[in-house]
Amino acid sequence: MTALAERARAALDPVHWDFFAGGAGEERTLRANEEAFSRRRIVPRVLRGVGDRDLSTELFGTRLSMPVLVAPTAFHRLAHPAGEVGTAGAVAASDTVMVVSMAATQPVEDITATGAAVWFQLYPQPDDEFQRHVVKRAEAAGCRALVVTVDSPVFGRRERDRRNGFDDLPDGYTCENMRDGEGRVREIGFDPTLGWEHVHRLRASTGLPIVLKGVLHPADARLAVEHGVDGLIVSNHGGRQLDGAIATVDALPAIVRAVDGRIPVLVDGGVRRGADIAVALALGATAVLIGRPIIWGLAAGGPSGVRDVLEAFRDELDHVLTLAGAARPSDLTADQVA
């Protein structure tokens, strides 16, 4: 993915490259996500007669052709004029799921109109009435789950953006999914008083599956199950919130043990190759989410670039499964990771 990242960097305004590539603080957690995957090695099984592989999985009633989703990332139109709609078209062609950011630069209705399977990412909002409006809009557009980001009671300190003075979108761009009932664009609110009661209120307002994104501690994973959450994403926001937070693949095994199979556990952060996906699956993840490589593909090649990224991950994962002795993602086991 290094060559693709360099192509994207060449195509992007340097300020926008820093926005997409950067993390919080000294970017220790940003680096740690990739380093944690690089430390791990696969222990293959042999003579398993795997034959044809089946990469498909199912999440909340949606069949995915592979255990790879597109993570919520903001401002796709800064990467390419096709924006989130272009990304969604590639996702539809690859038969997987796109998690649309609340900070998307195109309306959720236009994104779901591509035919892609879409989940909607929600920052819990201090204004309950406005939050209900956003959720109902996502439901009406056909989103199939809510991904609730819980690691952002305040906004992360992103030094590259502070240095570049990047604190707002350029003229002609806006967060289209932050429009209220009168069409006015609201700012995304962050709420340091956020607690489990907010999850209860959200549950009362929607029948969609609720997936919490940003869980790193096993005690929180157990609480999530107790509070009726439908799924978890082990995430540190791509290293963009708390610098110094644990790498996601390091946190994954304890979360999987805490959940004990009661709800699906997904993971994002630092996935750059098919072997990384295999490691995450072996450690108990149901699927992974890909963030920055999708933006790199979009910036470097538009929607077809996104499709190329997704298909590269598919091809690499299929190859790794074969060499590791697994016909299906669920065949991988924790003793195959060293």
Results as ranks from 00 to 15, higher is better:
residue 239 G to P: 10
residue 227 H to T: 03
residue 292 R to D: 00
residue 45 R to W: 02
residue 137 R to C: 09
residue 334 A to C: 07
residue 234 V to W: 12
residue 153 P to S: 07
residue 302 G to N: 07
residue 128 D to Q: 14
residue 235 S to H: 08
residue 336 Q to H: 05
residue 305 G to T: 03
residue 133 H to R: 05
residue 310 L to I: 07
residue 79 A to E: 11
residue 46 V to Y: 08
residue 180 D to Y: 10
residue 246 I to M: 11
residue 256 V to M: 04
residue 211 V to C: 05
residue 334 A to D: 14
residue 320 V to R: 05
residue 307 R to T: 11
residue 251 A to D: 07
residue 235 S to L: 12
residue 46 V to D: 00
residue 300 A to R: 09
residue 274 G to L: 06
residue 64 L to S: 07
residue 39 R to L: 08
residue 264 P to N: 04
residue 36 A to I: 10
residue 206 T to R: 01
residue 95 D to N: 08
residue 328 R to P: 00
residue 336 Q to C: 06
residue 181 G to Q: 14
residue 144 R to H: 09
residue 328 R to Q: 09
residue 133 H to P: 01
residue 191 D to S: 13
residue 64 L to T: 06
residue 194 L to A: 11
residue 312 A to S: 15
residue 313 F to G: 06
residue 170 P to S: 08
residue 40 R to G: 05
residue 215 V to H: 12
residue 160 R to N: 13
residue 207 G to N: 08
residue 63 R to Y: 00
residue 284 G to N: 10
residue 63 R to D: 06
residue 104 A to H: 04
residue 209 P to L: 00
residue 261 G to C: 12
residue 71 A to T: 15
residue 309 V to N: 04
residue 45 R to Y: 00
residue 19 F to R: 02
residue 76 H to N: 12
residue 22 G to E: 10
residue 320 V to N: 04
residue 57 T to F: 07
residue 290 I to R: 01
residue 200 H to V: 10
residue 90 A to G: 08
residue 232 L to A: 11
residue 80 H to V: 05
residue 53 R to P: 01
residue 310 L to D: 05
residue 116 A to V: 07
residue 53 R to Y: 04
residue 219 A to I: 08
residue 209 P to A: 07
residue 234 V to N: 12
residue 168 D to M: 10
residue 166 F to Y: 15
residue 219 A to L: 14
residue 130 F to R: 05
residue 68 V to K: 03
residue 182 E to Y: 11
residue 205 S to E: 14
residue 222 R to M: 10
residue 18 D to I: 02
residue 302 G to C: 03
residue 226 E to R: 15
residue 135 V to C: 00
residue 190 F to W: 12
residue 195 G to N: 15
residue 150 V to F: 10
residue 153 P to R: 06
residue 96 T to M: 05
residue 208 L to S: 01
residue 257 R to M: 11
residue 135 V to I: 15
residue 154 V to S: 02
residue 129 E to N: 00
residue 109 E to S: 14
residue 12 L to E: 11
residue 86 G to T: 02
residue 9 R to E: 10
residue 240 R to L: 05
residue 204 A to C: 06
residue 214 G to K: 07
residue 298 L to Q: 08
residue 174 T to R: 14
residue 321 L to P: 02
residue 112 T to E: 14
residue 19 F to C: 00
residue 155 F to W: 09
residue 224 A to V: 09
residue 164 N to D: 14
residue 296 W to C: 03
residue 217 H to K: 11
residue 279 V to P: 01
residue 332 L to D: 10
residue 66 M to F: 08
residue 237 H to I: 06
residue 115 G to S: 02
